[in-house]
Simulated assay, not measured.
Amino acid sequence: MDVFSRTFLPAAAEAGVAIPTVSRHMPILRRCVESDDATVLVSRCLRPEHAMSGDFLLLLTYRRLVVTQETWVLRRLRLHLNANLRHLSNVTWNIDLRRHAVDLAATAVDGVRERFRVRVAEPDHVWRVESLLRHVFRERAAQPGGDRPVAAAVGA
């Protein structure tokens, strides 16, 4: 079993993503991520400015951010975002403890600002998601060649 497979399933289970959802999205995710790339975060999410656009699944690894979309009516899957972390700029996140959510935003290489809301079941999980984002994006910014600005906003 490769690194991606070994780390993806536990991360999906930790986030409470159902196995049927994981199974539907896995072929798309598998094409986007290298087999030696470890999964950091898997979560269902939504796009706050496009509330009726369907369900999204967010995958964050140490190298990539991948978001897939499933339409509500026909349940069709499509790749929404597949970005190398080096190509993302102005990555920010905001904690909303009242909604048990973390709002993540990043500007993709094509200049489009992408926004996602990651909702979690427990208030403590908000801090877990925030620590994972901080770990991946701040660590990348601190590495040589990690030249992308990263900011985090924390609010309640």
Results as ranks from 00 to 15, higher is better:
residue 79 L to M: 14
residue 112 V to F: 12
residue 133 L to F: 14
residue 41 L to I: 13
residue 42 V to Y: 03
residue 136 V to M: 02
residue 70 E to W: 03
residue 4 F to Q: 10
residue 36 D to N: 13
residue 121 A to W: 07
residue 103 D to Y: 08
residue 133 L to K: 04
residue 130 E to W: 15
residue 12 A to V: 01
residue 111 G to F: 12
residue 66 V to D: 00
residue 3 V to P: 01
residue 138 R to D: 15
residue 73 V to N: 13
residue 81 L to P: 01
residue 12 A to W: 01
residue 37 D to K: 06
residue 54 G to A: 04
residue 41 L to M: 15
residue 81 L to H: 07
residue 18 A to T: 09
residue 102 V to A: 08
residue 16 G to F: 06
residue 131 S to C: 07
residue 10 P to G: 03
residue 148 R to K: 10
residue 110 D to F: 09
residue 67 V to Q: 04
residue 142 A to N: 07
residue 98 R to I: 06
residue 45 C to H: 04
residue 16 G to I: 04
residue 86 R to M: 12
residue 141 A to C: 09
residue 126 V to H: 03
residue 62 Y to S: 05
residue 139 E to S: 15
residue 71 T to Q: 02
residue 83 A to G: 14
residue 35 S to P: 00
residue 113 R to A: 08
residue 62 Y to R: 05
residue 63 R to A: 12
residue 28 I to C: 06
residue 24 R to K: 11
residue 152 A to G: 08
residue 57 L to A: 05
residue 153 A to F: 08
residue 107 T to I: 13
residue 11 A to K: 14
residue 133 L to D: 02
residue 128 R to Y: 13
residue 119 R to Q: 11
residue 73 V to E: 09
residue 5 S to A: 09
residue 34 E to A: 12
residue 77 L to G: 06
residue 14 E to D: 15
residue 40 V to P: 02
residue 60 L to Q: 00
residue 76 R to D: 01
residue 128 R to I: 14
residue 85 L to M: 09
residue 87 H to A: 06
residue 57 L to Q: 12
residue 20 P to R: 05
residue 77 L to I: 03
residue 57 L to D: 04
residue 101 A to Y: 01
residue 42 V to D: 02
residue 150 V to H: 03
residue 30 R to N: 05
residue 110 D to Y: 10
residue 25 H to D: 15
residue 70 E to L: 12
residue 34 E to N: 12
residue 147 D to H: 14
residue 109 V to K: 14
residue 115 R to E: 11
residue 2 D to S: 15
residue 51 A to F: 05
residue 32 C to I: 04
residue 43 S to G: 14
residue 3 V to W: 07
residue 40 V to F: 01
residue 156 A to S: 13
residue 80 H to Y: 06
residue 16 G to M: 06
residue 95 I to L: 14
residue 58 L to E: 03
residue 141 A to W: 04
residue 148 R to G: 05
residue 120 V to T: 12
residue 87 H to Q: 09
residue 78 R to G: 09
residue 16 G to Q: 06
residue 6 R to V: 04
residue 49 E to M: 14
residue 59 L to Q: 08
residue 74 L to P: 03
residue 71 T to S: 08
residue 74 L to V: 12
residue 86 R to P: 00
residue 137 F to N: 00
residue 38 A to P: 03
residue 130 E to M: 15
residue 93 W to M: 03
residue 120 V to L: 05
residue 10 P to V: 01
residue 14 E to A: 15
residue 54 G to P: 07
residue 125 H to A: 13
residue 116 F to S: 02
residue 148 R to S: 13
residue 65 L to K: 02
residue 36 D to W: 08
residue 45 C to S: 11
residue 24 R to P: 00
residue 102 V to S: 06
residue 76 R to I: 05
residue 68 T to H: 05
residue 126 V to C: 11
residue 18 A to L: 11
residue 99 R to N: 14
residue 101 A to P: 02
residue 113 R to N: 08
residue 100 H to V: 03
residue 26 M to L: 12
residue 95 I to N: 10
residue 30 R to F: 03
residue 84 N to Q: 08
residue 94 N to M: 06
residue 37 D to T: 10
residue 141 A to F: 02
residue 9 L to H: 10
residue 94 N to E: 09
residue 111 G to L: 13
residue 148 R to T: 08
residue 18 A to K: 11
